[in-house]
Structures are given as C-alpha cells and as structure tokens.
Design a protein around this nucleic acid. Sequence first.
DNA 1: TCTGGCACTCTCACCATGAGAGTGCCAAAC
DNA 2: GTTTGGCACTCTCATGGTGAGAGTGCCAGA
Lengths: 351, 351
Amino acid sequence: MASKGSDLRLDERSRRLLKTLVERFIQDAQPVGSRTLSRDSGMELSPATVRNVMADLEEMGLVAAPHTSAGRIPTVKGYRLFIDTLLKVQPLSRVEVERLRENLETGEEFNPQSLISTASNLLSGITNMAGVVTLPRRDHSEIRHMEFVSLSAGRVLAILVFSDNEIQNRILHVEREYSPSELQQASNYLSSLFVGSGLMDVRRRLLNELSRTREDMNETMRAAVEMAGKVFSSSDEEDYVIAGQVNLMNFKELSDVDKLRQLFEAFTTKRDILHLLDQCVSADGVQIFIGEESGYKVLDGCSVVTAPYEIDDHVVGVLGVIGPTRMAYDRVIPIVDVTARLLGAALNSRE
Amino acid sequence: MASKGSDLRLDERSRRLLKTLVERFIQDAQPVGSRTLSRDSGMELSPATVRNVMADLEEMGLVAAPHTSAGRIPTVKGYRLFIDTLLKVQPLSRVEVERLRENLETGEEFNPQSLISTASNLLSGITNMAGVVTLPRRDHSEIRHMEFVSLSAGRVLAILVFSDNEIQNRILHVEREYSPSELQQASNYLSSLFVGSGLMDVRRRLLNELSRTREDMNETMRAAVEMAGKVFSSSDEEDYVIAGQVNLMNFKELSDVDKLRQLFEAFTTKRDILHLLDQCVSADGVQIFIGEESGYKVLDGCSVVTAPYEIDDHVVGVLGVIGPTRMAYDRVIPIVDVTARLLGAALNSRE
DNA sequence: TCTGGCACTCTCACCATGAGAGTGCCAAAC
DNA sequence: GTTTGGCACTCTCATGGTGAGAGTGCCAGA
C-alpha cells in the first residue's frame, strides 16, 4: 500500500494526471492524448503543460507511447503505482452484494463442490472476465463421519464425511472378504479415534498406528488401520474451478488467436495458474498481479486479482478474477474481496 | 451409404476427381485448381478437361469457387457425397489402438467418471481436435448397493452404488433423528427390494410404493420408502465432458475470434451440443454431421463425428469428435468407432 | 470428346498518398 | 521559473493504383 521507495516522488499534479490517464485508458482502451487529458483532469492545464508532464512520466517508466503520435498508455509500473496509491475502490452496489449473497448463502442442497463452482461463475458473471476458485484444502477440516461398506468379494467402499459436508468415497481392494459386522467394528474403532480431528492430524497419528503393531489390537482393528491408511494416503491434489474463459475473447487486447490459445492452454494445464494462486494463500487480503509481474509470460497483458478465503479462520483456498490488464480495478477488487468472505462464510461448518 | 437419390448420378471420372479434390483440400486447406487436380488424379486428363468437369460439379453444388480465379473447394454436399460413397476409411494403426486400449483398460482405480474424461482426452489427443463424451445414462444400470448413514440430527447420508461402480451420494434432510439400527433396517428393506434392479425399474416401482400406504409396513419402512423417493427423484441431467477445445484454435478456418467465441460459448452452454449428441443415441454406429447439416449455425464450418457407446447391450451415451469440416475423416471415423467400443467394454459391469 | 490457347477476372502484396492525431521543442507570456 | 501557444515533425491508417500470379471460361481445332 505504501508508495514504492525508489524515484517515484511525484508531485500532486503528476499523480492526478497519471490517475486520469489510467482511468481514461481503462474506460476506452485507447491511448490518451494531451488534449483529452487536459480536458479530463479537472485541472486548468493546457495540453502543452500536460505534454511536459507526460514526458517526465514516460522517463520514469510509468507511461509509454505506442508510437510517436499516439497518446500515452500506462505501463505495468504505471498500473502498479495507480493501484497502490491512487486507486479509490468503489464499494459494491447493493444489487451486486445481494446477488452474491443470494447465490452463496447456502440453500437446501448444501454441497461444497457446487458452492465452489457457483462462486467461480459469479465472479466471471459479475466482472465479465474469467473467475477462478481453488478447491479448499482439507488439512484442517474435521472428519465428521467415517464408514466402511462391503461391496463384493475383495471390495470395500470407504466413505468420509467432512465438517463442511464434503463427502469423499473410494473403493478399496482388500485381500479377504469382511463381514458387515467386522466392517461395522472397524468403522466404530476408527471413528472413535478420528472423528473430530483434522485431516492433517489424522494422517500424522495414522502413521504412528501403522508403524507399530500393538498387542492390544485384534485382527479387525489392524485391518481397519490398514484400510484407513489407504483411504488417507490420497494426497489431495490441488485443483481449481475456472469459469467464463470465453469472456476473455471479448477483449480486443486479447484478439490474437495465438495469444488466446496460449492462455487457454495455461488454463487447461493448470500448473502455472495453480502456482500463481498458491502464492496468494499466504497473502493477507486482496492481491494483484499486473501483466508479467506474475512471472508467467502467458499472463502478459492480463491481470489477476485474488483473495484467500477461509474456513474456521484457516485459509483453505484462493479465488480470483483473470482479465486484461486494462480492467476496472476499483470494481473488481471489492468484488473479489467480498466474494472471498461470503464463500468462506458459506463453507463454514454449520448445521 | 447409398448415393443420395436426386441428380447425383456421377460418372466414374467425376467421382474420382471429386475424391482427389476433397482429399487434396483436406490435406492442405487450399482451393484446388485444375492443374493440380489433373496431376493428382492419376488419370491422363488435361487441366482443360478437368475444368469442364469442375463446372459440372459446381452446377450440382458439390464444389464451389471462393472467387473466379481460385481453385474449387468442396461444399457440404460435396463432403457428404465424399463421405457416403467415396471415402475409404483407414484402419487404425497398431500404435493407436494400443494407446487407446492401454488407457481405457481399467486399472486398479476403476471409476466411471475418470474413464469418461480419459476417453474425452484420448479422442482429443489422438485427433488433435476436441473430444466429447456424454455421461452414461443409468436407466438400465443396476443398483448394487444402497445404504443410509446417520450424520447428525435431521441429516441422513444416502449412498448408492451402481453396477458399473458409479457411486452417488446425497444428503437428505429428514424430520426426526433416526437411530443407526433404524437406518440399517431401512437400508436392508430397500436393498431387498431394489438391489439388482435397473434404475428405471426402481423409479417405476417406487412410485407405486409411494402412492399406496400399505398396512403391512411399519413406520421405519414407510420412512425408508420416503427417503428412497427423495434419493431417486433426482432426474439425472444429461451432461458431457469435453476436452481439447484449445486444439480448435490451431485451425486456420477457425481463426476468427468471434467465431471461436460462439463455438466455445456453445460448449459451455452445452444445450445445443447435447441436443445434437442426443440425436446420435439412436443411430446405429458412427454418425457424421457436416457443417450446418447439424442445424446449429455455431457449428458452421465444423463437423461432428459421433458414435454411441453401450453398457450391457444398452446404448448409454455418445462420444465424438468436433473439428473443422476439413478433417481427415478416414482417420477420425475409425478412431471414434473404436473408442466407443473400448469405452463401452471398459464401463461394462465387471468384477 | 478432349485439348491447347487465350482473354479475362480476382486476389494479394506493394507502394504512394493524404488526412488525422499527437508529439517535441522553442520562444514568448505570465 | 513555470506555463502556454505555435509550428514542424512523425507515425498510423484508410484509400487507391499497379502488376504479378493463379486459375477460370470459352472457343476452335484435333
């Protein structure tokens, strides 16, 4: 939030001009000339004066001219300064907040999966850009229920229910057939051990259980522990849900098919985007990557606005919006911010 | 397969020329001129003669010239004739069949969902176009297992396992709390009624059960039937998994961003594409829609090659490939065909 | 019936041209 | 010293003309 140290001591006039320039450019996607700027700035300055200021800003690397006789456009550095020190975010309109709340306030059918994709769709729908939401990490979510069900010879169905109503199941292949009562016993035993514990905790304790064979365990318990080992071995891979990619095709800065292809490939591959989103888990609130700042050149020309979301005071995921650098940050930032809070609230363990 | 009735009685020479023209155009995406054609056809014909034939073909609407001095390109009608009567499909190479088999022959972790998306990815990967697979309808798949699990006051988890290992679960909201033994009883009762029956069958019989209150039912059974009613009420909505849409961005006939956007929107909306795929369920084998033949103008310039796939001799879904009209049908057709068979086999109920 | 020849047409790449927009800089004004 | 008006300059973009290249249509002759 503080102004970057370096040589960017700008006087008030330059700051205001930069601000109007960025706003104007965001509005209509065209290089802004000195004439327009002198009109729009609200200050009584002649185009010539503006030109002088522009020359300074250009030297500082805050704006650039596509060619000699075009107006100026903000550089990444210019956007950065704008966002960090000049931007005044606009609170969400009531309608928008309502729309978010209505959709995220969980109805009858409560289901984390669908909440996540709803959030992603909302983000893209409201901003007309792409919305992205990572699946929540379950490291800290508690186990509410666990149970084994016999399917057929050698196959056992394991069911896990988490505190946020997430249900996971998996079919285990086992050596011998277990009777329903044996499985019941195993379920009971493991439930007594693990229900109410966080997943990370469970994994840790399970490792202990597995390593030593205790005399006081009967065969069923041992089998139970072994099955649990298989169930919990799944390293929950990170993943995200993205929505509204097509929206990006409407922006003229992304009208190059080749550019678009690379971007969409990145969305499908997921690796780079996940990396980027991961960095935001540790951030405090809304975080913004402008253009190549992110370090991924596919995102050149794009900005990513993210915010982490929490369940029970633990950050479990990140959501955000991906769009052209030239986006209405004053609108997008609060949208991302509020959505993160609402999603967190909606996911919170509850009755 | 038979030549369309109308006026398309073509002599052998015209047919051969049309065939080479289409092949050539598929190969290098450029209008084919008389000179090239006379060389490639393998027949001893001067360009002039070829031109005469071309004039005839154009009159019949089988080929068209983008402008006076370009060569000819096939029309939809031309493609149709080509595919129906001239095309000789190429059997898959051993490598390709192996790749398909390896990926679809179910390994340890058998799971219909992932098989479907593997199939979709394979289709797109091998053809370098977009692959699409509808989720299998479960009307005829048998129920292997059903069970109720108490979660907390007023919430019961219902679990359904189908013959193809598909697992579905759903949280039910109920009026009062049920004890584990009550739920066990309910599970047993319903299992005895429904395990081994097809879903369609179950729905029908359940309606009967629900409509009349029988005296010989105790309260638990009645509750069981009611819960089952909720579980099975879910009209399983149709859906599909699509993969490799980005591949379509590589084709120069789809280099118009606007065109692409419409296409991608259709993929996201799903409605039109589902409609189209639905029509193929009833078809016998591979079916091909060329360009606007499908009736959807978003698909102008695209062809769709589909084949239904079966579980236990019931057609349960459709898979296919979407790409530019100018695609290598001789390769794509067998790929779609074989994949449909392999996917069906892989999904077949089995130990 | 087929073919060679020829005039014709259309595209495409290239260049020149001029209008429009905006700059940079200088000298004068405040 | 800062601001301003003026003016030459530069760059883009749309327009139009030109010539090469490709391929056609048609006609007359084999």
